[in-house]
Computed example of a mutant assay.
Amino acid sequence: MRNKTAQNKVINKSSDGFIRIISGQFRGRKLPVKDVQGLRPTTDRIKETVFNWLMQDTRDTNVLDCFAGSGGLGFEALSRFAKSATFIELDLLAATQLEHNITTLKLQNAHVKNINTLSFLEQKNLNEPFDLVFVDPPFRKNLAQISCDFLEKNQWLSSEALIYVEVESDLNSFTKPDNWLLIKEKKAGQVFSRLYQRQSN
């Protein structure tokens, strides 16, 4: 049993990886990522597309990274001088790694909440709303739809917030809130990337 446990530890360690920050003040930095079941870090190619879309719209924003996982989107936003970032991640190993990476980058404006994203979003937001939100959930669980509905319903968004949503390319059932305007979209392999802007009522 001891040998088997040791072997599993070696396997898990060897399958851990890294994400790379592609631009901004931390450009080129590599941050460790735990090998967690269901974690699907956004590829550099998609990340580059997203932040090209957001080129003029990241600085000084309050960022919410839902289903943060590796934190690739949130850390990229912080590298590009976002005002703050909140990472929501249910898996304890992944959340702990996010904390370590925040410490490594010496960030004072980033926070991790080790909680179920839907449990977090179903509450009314009583604090400052978010200007930029990333919704990149595990596929095949309808989590994007529920999350976006909660974001709009429970006052998580500033009046003209930008919301990036990443879903599986064959998902046809996703429906945006009525006051979200689709401003960019791109399909790449199994991933459909969309950027929305909230229209203030």
Rank of each mutant, 00 (worst) to 15 (best):
R2P: 09
N3H: 15
T5N: 15
A6H: 12
A6Q: 13
Q7E: 13
N8C: 12
N8F: 15
N12Y: 12
N12D: 13
N12M: 08
G17I: 00
F18R: 10
F18D: 11
I19M: 07
I22M: 08
I22T: 00
I22K: 01
S23G: 10
G28F: 01
G28M: 01
R29Q: 00
L31K: 05
L31F: 05
V33P: 03
K34M: 10
V36L: 07
G38D: 00
P41H: 03
T42M: 02
T42P: 07
T42R: 09
T43N: 09
D44N: 14
R45W: 13
R45Q: 14
I46F: 11
I46Q: 03
V50P: 07
V50H: 02
N52A: 14
W53Q: 09
W53D: 05
W53M: 12
M55C: 12
Q56W: 11
D57T: 11
D57S: 13
R59D: 10
D60R: 01
T61E: 04
T61Y: 02
N62R: 15
D65C: 01
F67S: 03
S70M: 10
G71I: 01
L73Q: 05
G74V: 03
F75Q: 03
E76P: 03
E76A: 03
A77C: 02
S79I: 03
S79N: 01
R80D: 07
A82G: 04
K83Y: 14
S84P: 09
A85Q: 03
T86W: 06
F87Y: 00
L90D: 02
L92W: 11
L93Y: 06
Q97P: 03
N101W: 06
N101F: 02
N101I: 02
I102Y: 05
T104P: 05
L107S: 07
H111C: 09
N116Y: 05
L118D: 08
L118F: 12
K124F: 13
K124E: 15
N125K: 10
L126N: 14
F130K: 00
D131Y: 09
V133A: 06
V135M: 02
D136N: 08
P138C: 03
F139E: 03
R140F: 14
R140H: 14
N142L: 05
L143G: 05
A144H: 10
A144S: 11
A144P: 13
S147W: 11
F150E: 00
K153L: 07
K153R: 07
Q155R: 11
Q155K: 15
Q155V: 07
W156I: 00
L157F: 01
S158G: 08
E160G: 12
E166G: 00
S169W: 04
F174C: 14
D178E: 15
N179Q: 15
N179A: 12
W180F: 10
W180H: 04
I183A: 11
E185T: 14
K187C: 13
A188S: 15
A188I: 15
G189P: 15
F192A: 14
S193W: 08
R194Y: 09
Q197F: 13
R198S: 07
S200N: 02
